[in-house]
Write a protein that binds this DNA or RNA. Structure first.
Lengths: 199, 199, 199, 199
DNA sequence: TATGAATGAGTATTCATTCAT
DNA sequence: GATGAATGAATACTCATTCAT
């Protein structure tokens, strides 16, 4: 597969078409119910062309899932740090709240990333040379800001990771399954927990 | 399909064979790579017989996943409460530790339940009339023991749920993906978090 | 299989249940979509019992199809010959009209017998010793009444048969398929043809 | 699926292979006893290729049944109208006779089209834009030639349709079931009826 | 780079029938 | 006669991927 910068404008266009077609169909019908055939039809591209741009169906999915994760995280982070007031914990909760609200409005995105989320994938992309400095920066910044006694940076990163994971898990079960309660009911408890952890 | 108590001894036996065959193969090869054919072959039973006992492949999977969850939880809870010393938090952490150790030894079980876990399914079974009082009791007992200021029982249950979810999530990513760190490295941080939440 | 007169009252009852269940389900869902399982469930009878009364699924179907044919024909014939006025042709057309009206109201019966009608079956039953004298009598009577020059009884029977077949065929295509026209539109043309043939 | 005219020569060839394989096997073993598997094996084509050319098994059957109907009708019509002598009725009977003789020699074709004949299918194909003008022309010509007092063109078409249906029905029961008599015995009576109807 | 015809492995499920009890 | 658990053969259809053009 070619890397992005080698692609001509026309190729960029085809690639983008495939991504948008995949995103639409995966979100609409799920992974199992979306065939490569449907994707190329929607992207107005020949069957074989798909494999010129993506190694296989999973590769396309991974890219889409990553894009969703990335944009949701970045958007929430930026909004939280654009706030003029608020301490670290308040900003963190504001960020989580934004993420929750996003998924509450787009539950299909949540369903897709939750069932197919792959942390190694995320990690790999973040640490690829020169790639996604932005996202790396966000995670570092969150870890550095954390004030817990006798904690080093790696441990801080783990705390952030654990907390975010918990939020995503709860999002999924509360929004998708309404279990153990709906999201709005869960929110105060969740924020109480976060305050205890980060405080 | 028949309910469990209507089954004769011979039928119980066949059913048990199917469950064990399914468990073995699902754990060994995953859901997608396990055919009904393989299951009945291993269970020494005719193809049609499978559908006498389970509505479809998913029904079998659900039962297996539920059984795993249940037994892991109960075992850990019992061990923790058999301790003579220790306060609530200590027992809770002991319980989580037991769960983690279980899955560290049987990562395939973890992979299976994480990809196919359905909380509504669990909920449904727990609350069915007269069914699984034991598991219900465990969850209630954990919630009741929780001492956080100004918290009611439902909120307490949510805290328990959130905490357990976080543990399961971390188990999955640390044990299966070794991300963001391996399980042993994550443990102290996790227990620190738990202490902060429950304390 | 047992013949009818050997059956006890209880057995008659079971047999009748199976017939009614089969009739209902065949008419409702068609042959392919009706399983023996569904039939025995509806008849409140064990699976094996079915095969005590009918050699197989087809045997049940044949009996049902025969019953429908028989009763429709007899009913129409009797009504036509109960008329006080009218010559042979008029009565014949009256009879056909009654059959058509019957099937217009019960198109599922028409679909069932048309797809699964077996003339040899009918013949076999009619000519079985002492069996269905009534139906034989009807066909004979229709043939004998026919006045066409230089025609013998066998030929007369063939004319009757051909005419009835044509009516059934047209019923099927006009009522079920609305082709080449609907039944009401076809009727005058059909009766014109009958008059030409029998006149 | 592609329409016929879009197919390359190679594809035409594969399609033809599938049609011939289907025809052979359907005629030899009937619809139920012919698997798609057997068809593709005989056509020397991969399983998936079948579904490139036909939507499903039924679609293939429909095409075959239509082809048989079409060719038998056209052949008979042409032979009848190639006659130098004979009035309308004589030609019509000649045509029917040709059809009967055809099916007498190929009873399996008769069995296949009779059980699976779908007049709407025929109609649909005939009336598709620019499609099968030839067959339409035949039916129109037969209807126009009919001389019955006070009859309009639509009614004439219905008479033709009813007559042809009767012939096909009798073919089926006389040739396949030998009921109510064999075909040769039935012929004179049938032609007598036709003369009465068309005369 | 782009195409799209061809491939063929892969599988869940149904159901008529039997037979031990 | 009655049961109903057990059988296992039988089959249409999908779809990711390839490769000749």
């Amino acid at each position: 597969m070619l890397t992005r910068r080698e692609l001509s404008a026309k190729m960029q266009y085809k690639r983008a078409n495939l991504l948008e077609a995949g995103r639409y169909l995966f979100l609409e019908n799920g992974l199992q119910n979306t065939s490569v055939d449907a994707i190329v039809r929607r992207a107005n591209v020949a069957k074989g062309t798909f494999y010129l741009y993506f190694h296989d169906k999973d590769a396309l999915l991974n890219e889409i899932v990553y894009d969703i994760n990335r944009s949701v995280l970045l958007k929430a982070y930026r909004k939280a740090y654009a706030l003029e007031t608020g301490d670290y914990t308040a900003r963190f909760i504001y960020m989580i709240d934004d993420i929750i609200n996003h998924f509450a409005e787009k539950p299909r995105e949540l369903a897709l990333i939750r069932k197919n989320f792959s942390w190694p994938l995320l990690k790999e992309r973040i640490t690829s040379v020169g790639e996604d400095l932005e996202l790396t920066e966000v995670l570092n910044s969150l870890a550095k800001g954390l004030c817990i006694e006798d904690i080093n940076l790696d441990e801080a990163k783990n705390v952030i990771y654990a907390t975010v994971e918990m939020c995503f898990s709860l999002c999924y079960s509360c929004i998708i399954n309404k279990q153990p309660s709906d999201m709005e009911t869960m929110k105060p408890t969740l924020y109480l927990i976060i305050r205890k952890v980060l405080g």
